[in-house]
Computed example of a mutant assay.
Amino acid sequence: MATAWKPSPVIKIYEALGAVADGRVEIDGDTARVASSDKAKTYDVRHDPAAGSITANDNGSYWQGYLGYPGIAYLMERGVLAYDGGLTAGLAGVPWKELATRYRNDWAKVEKHVREDLSEKGVDLDRFDAGLAEISSRLEELALTKLSPRLRPPK
């Protein structure tokens, strides 16, 4: 029996939207390579649409058991995970790695920082939050399972 993914933290949806906004998702059929925000790493995503399975080798997907942003971004780009394209606007160029380092991987602080930036850019946060909730619920409805074999994250 295939293992289900844990629900992805909402910050991973922000990151996925950022990856899409930055054009960091390179799709090749049922696989993709997704560059990190600082372009220092590239993550591999593999998808088996017929089996409803996906895997990615980012830390969240590998170690934490939730589908991380590379897998979510791939699903968005492939049209498997519908989303409001307007949500990406304020998330282009967000330096996720730098923010994670600055806030010592305290994702609540990273999210607060990004939300303040979005607000300054004139993004309607109520609309933004509604869009995030919709993506989150669609992701759960997909009920994707973990595709084997899993690749270890890049160093």
Rank of each mutant, 00 (worst) to 15 (best):
G71S: 12
G79C: 04
K41A: 11
A35I: 03
G86D: 09
A40V: 13
L132M: 10
G68P: 03
S148F: 03
M1S: 13
Y62D: 06
T88N: 05
M1E: 10
D126L: 02
T88C: 10
P70C: 14
L67C: 13
R127L: 06
E134S: 14
R138T: 02
E134T: 13
K112E: 15
S53Q: 14
D38Q: 08
A56M: 10
P70Y: 10
P149D: 13
L118M: 07
K109T: 10
R78D: 01
V20P: 00
P153T: 03
S53C: 12
P70H: 14
R115Y: 04
H113M: 07
I27K: 07
P9G: 01
T3P: 01
M1C: 04
D48V: 04
K121V: 01
A16R: 08
N57M: 00
D44Y: 03
V25I: 04
A89I: 02
V10K: 15
G90E: 13
A108E: 12
E98I: 09
I135K: 10
A21P: 02
L125Q: 10
D38I: 11
L151V: 05
R152K: 15
I54R: 11
W96N: 06
V114K: 03
L142D: 15
Y69C: 06
K121E: 10
L87G: 14
R78P: 00
A143E: 02
D38T: 11
L17N: 05
L17A: 08
R102Y: 10
D106L: 02
W107E: 10
D44H: 11
S61T: 00
R104C: 01
A82T: 13
Y69E: 04
T55R: 15
